[in-house]
Design a protein around this nucleic acid. Sequence first.
DNA 1: TTGTTACCTAACAATCAGTGGTAATTATGG
DNA 2: CCATAATTACCACTGATTGTTAGGTAACAA
Lengths: 165, 165
Amino acid sequence: MQTPEELTARFRATGRKVTAQRQCVFRVLQGDESHPSAEAVHAAARRQVETISLKTVYQTLHDLTELGEIAALDIGTGMVRFDPNVEEPHHHLVCRVCGKVSDLVVDFPELSVPERATQGFELGAPEVVFRGRCPECRSRSTDPSVGSTPGGSPTGGERDAPTSP
Amino acid sequence: MQTPEELTARFRATGRKVTAQRQCVFRVLQGDESHPSAEAVHAAARRQVETISLKTVYQTLHDLTELGEIAALDIGTGMVRFDPNVEEPHHHLVCRVCGKVSDLVVDFPELSVPERATQGFELGAPEVVFRGRCPECRSRSTDPSVGSTPGGSPTGGERDAPTSP
DNA sequence: TTGTTACCTAACAATCAGTGGTAATTATGG
DNA sequence: CCATAATTACCACTGATTGTTAGGTAACAA
Ligand SMILES: [Mn+2]
Ligand SMILES: [Mn+2]
Ligand SMILES: [Zn+2]
Ligand SMILES: [Zn+2]
């Protein structure tokens, strides 16, 4: 995703009007690496423009996706997640417990399909998803098998666990 | 997934009753490589047991998933797709147009994440999805004027494929 | 500056996949 | 046989997303 200023220009150039609400969504998305849902974007946007409607957020996300400025990821968390990082190809780690999505910056070189295995499909880029448990959900787990990871990563950060869908 | 007979035994062994409806779902799933949705399973099951309810189908699919006899795939087609092939690890090709899901039998060897890239995640097996267009949708969405291009086809411009229904 | 027009909001209704409840009936398996 | 699980029809409900309306505001080109 480009900067809010560049997006402003691009919106004008594509016949779209630039409003305070849209620019607010631009700013919310800029540098956001949490892969927020539309609701999450809405919540963040409301902190800047209290009256912005969910509808407008959906509309702006749709426009940005159409322009290829962000990516809409549907990776089994129940909601579409939006990714402003479309410049750097990457994959994702998905927490099965809380739905957290993290970037996986590893590039997999050997990830091409032999022509005969494509079954006539016209293929795009591969999407790799590793599902598992994020650090927070690992440490929060009451599973007794967790707790003694020798030399592991005692990140210690046992933060609150807000999400309870 | 095991055979309907084996599933019958397994259901009994796990305290579940075996009914005509459940066995019907077993048979529908057996050898099905189309990764059907619950609705699709229901439609197929109705051809054998006309009165089987969608609820029962959901219940049976849930049970089978719980037992690990089938896999529930959420790969962005809007519905959960069920996969009776849990014996052979594999990946998937997904048609962006019609939602068709095909097995990708290629095994990717070097698909492991360097320890430092995991960000503390506890990871499961990687899921690879190639999105694209299936053969049917490729031939259906080409320009009408390109109906039968002989030899070296100047497929020229890939126009926007108009979204179906 | 002004006029056209896109945009925004609020408040709903609707869709779609999936879950949940009821009550009455059926049928499994010990 | 018979307790009890399962099934059915029916309907309400969630949650994400889209659509619709109507009235008001604001962007931007002239
Ligand atoms: Mn990402
Ligand atoms: Mn499969
Ligand atoms: Zn988590
Ligand atoms: Zn297709």
